[in-house]
């Protein structure tokens, strides 16, 4: 994080209120959401958040294997987050690793609370997220795409879930860090929130922030999430125009 040596072009990440990609401190990267992109799946979504690009697909509710994972009174949501080999600067060896395993888990816990799992006892709802290009914010993009894919699949939900991150970079709190800001900044705080009552379902902190800075970050994230939810709704309804 903050200890990383910066190459010349990122010496100053904020110049006169403008970030290295031209954004203001409270601006999200350009967001695109498409629905129904993987026909084989029950539901699917494609999300672009700046240069980060992800595909998400939902299969189910269906039978759950192995049987020892079955829950008698509700469905099990299983999430698999993977980064494709060519999604990063230096090719990543395909297959799960500790990082992708942890992210799969926090994304699962971000989405589970809004799903009416009790309507499908003993069954499995499977969400697969493949990151085809990673430029910071992949877990937030995964939550955005996963939420839309679940709604597209007809899974009963209390509402949607959106996510974005904020962090401290060169003394400023910035919304939706891009890769250089994430790599050379001081902290990164991704947060997922429910659409209906803005409750927090994903939260991680990397780096050092004071309580006041965290509160400031949450205000930015709230605004970001409100915008993201409106885009998610637009994408879901767009199928039916």
């Amino acid at each position: 994080m903050s200890g990383a040596k910066r190459p010349k072009e990122y010496e100053k990440l904020i110049v006169k209120g403008k970030r290295c990609d031209g954004r203001k401190i409270d601006e999200l990267r350009p967001l695109t959401i498409k629905v129904g992109v993987i026909k084989r799946a029950n539901g699917s979504a494609y999300v672009e958040l700046g240069k980060t690009k992800v595909y998400a697909a939902v299969y189910g509710p269906k039978e759950l294997h192995p049987r020892r994972l079955v829950e008698d009174d509700k469905a099990v949501l299983s999430v698999k987050y993977s980064m494709l080999a060519f999604s990063v600067n230096d090719r990543a060896r395909p297959g799960p690793n500790r990082r992708s395993t942890e992210i799969s888990k926090v994304v699962k816990h971000a989405l589970e609370p809004v799903i009416f799992l009790e309507e499908f006892p003993q069954l499995n709802i499977e969400l697969i997220v493949d990151i085809i290009q990673a430029d910071a914010g992949t877990r937030t993009a995964a939550v955005i795409a996963g939420s839309v894919a679940l709604a597209n699949a007809g899974i009963p939900m209390k509402g949607l879930v959106s996510a974005c991150a904020a962090g401290k970079v060169d003394g400023e709190i910035l919304l939706d860090l891009n890769a250089p800001e994430d790599n050379f900044g001081d902290s990164d705080l991704p947060i997922a929130m429910t659409s209906t009552d803005k409750k927090i379902t994903l939260m991680q902190l990397d780096g050092v922030m004071t309580k006041a800075e965290i509160q400031k970050a949450i205000i930015l994230i709230r605004k970001g999430n409100d915008y993201i939810i409106s885009k998610q709704i637009e994408a879901l309804k767009g199928v039916y125009q």
């Binding site: 993987i38 084989r40 799946a41 595909y55 998400a56 697909a57 299969y59 269906k62 698999k80 993977s82 494709l84 080999a85 395909p94 297959g95 799960p96 499977e126 697969i128 997220v129 493949d130």
Partner: peptide, 17 residues
């Protein structure tokens, strides 16, 4: 050359090597 048949593409594809 490497290929991955991710479970994203089909209910028949299993994750793993």
């Amino acid at each position: 050359t490497n290929a991955e048949r991710s479970p994203i593409a089909s209910p028949e594809f299993e994750s793993g090597p």
